[in-house]
Simulated assay, not measured.
Amino acid sequence: MSDFFNLAPVLVVGMVLGAVFFGGLWWTVRHAASSRWVALWFFGSLVVRTVIALTGFYLACGSDWRRWLAALLGFSIARVLVTRLTRSASLVAGDGSHAP
């Protein structure tokens, strides 16, 4: 039971990092398409999002494999949540520019 309380904050950190990573990807896709330098937007976004995620994982997890596992689980949960939220937001907005 003590392990759960030690790993719960790391799970939340993983969820926050996932929300930043995948939310940033969604924001990039929405805004870079109308930019003049699309490739630069995507590459820059990838670098920034990856540096933020890896730094956050390193600071939160250290060398404990259980903490890494909890953080990656939170990251995966955030991916599912962001995907569902952004899919419903684009359907409500009537954005028909992509296939379902």
Rank of each mutant, 00 (worst) to 15 (best):
V92T: 07
V51N: 01
A39V: 13
D64A: 11
L25C: 08
Y58G: 14
R79L: 10
W68V: 13
R79Y: 08
C61E: 08
A93M: 02
L25V: 13
A71F: 03
Y58V: 15
D64R: 04
W27V: 15
I52E: 05
L69A: 14
S76W: 07
V29N: 14
R49W: 11
R79P: 03
V47R: 12
T50H: 10
V16L: 13
M15H: 04
L69R: 13
V51G: 06
T28G: 09
G94W: 07
D3P: 09
T55S: 15
S35H: 15
T83M: 00
R87M: 05
W37M: 13
A71W: 02
R84P: 01
V80Q: 05
G23T: 08
G74Y: 02
R67Q: 11
A71Y: 06
L54I: 01
V10Q: 00
G23A: 07
W65G: 09
M1N: 12
L40Y: 11
A70P: 14
W68I: 13
G74K: 01
T86Y: 00
T83D: 01
A39K: 13
A32M: 07
A71D: 02
F75C: 14
N6H: 12
F21G: 02
R66Y: 06
V12G: 03
G23S: 10
F21S: 00
R79D: 04
V38W: 11
V48N: 12
V82C: 04
P100M: 00
L59T: 02
S45W: 08
A89Y: 09
H98N: 02
L46M: 15
P100C: 09
C61M: 10
A71R: 03
L25N: 12
W37K: 15
D64K: 00
L59E: 01
L7W: 11
T50Y: 07
V20E: 06
L11F: 15
W37E: 05
F75M: 08
V20D: 06
S45K: 13
R79E: 04
W65P: 10
R84F: 01
A39S: 15
L91S: 05
S2T: 09
S90R: 12
L91P: 00
S63W: 07
F43R: 02
L81M: 10
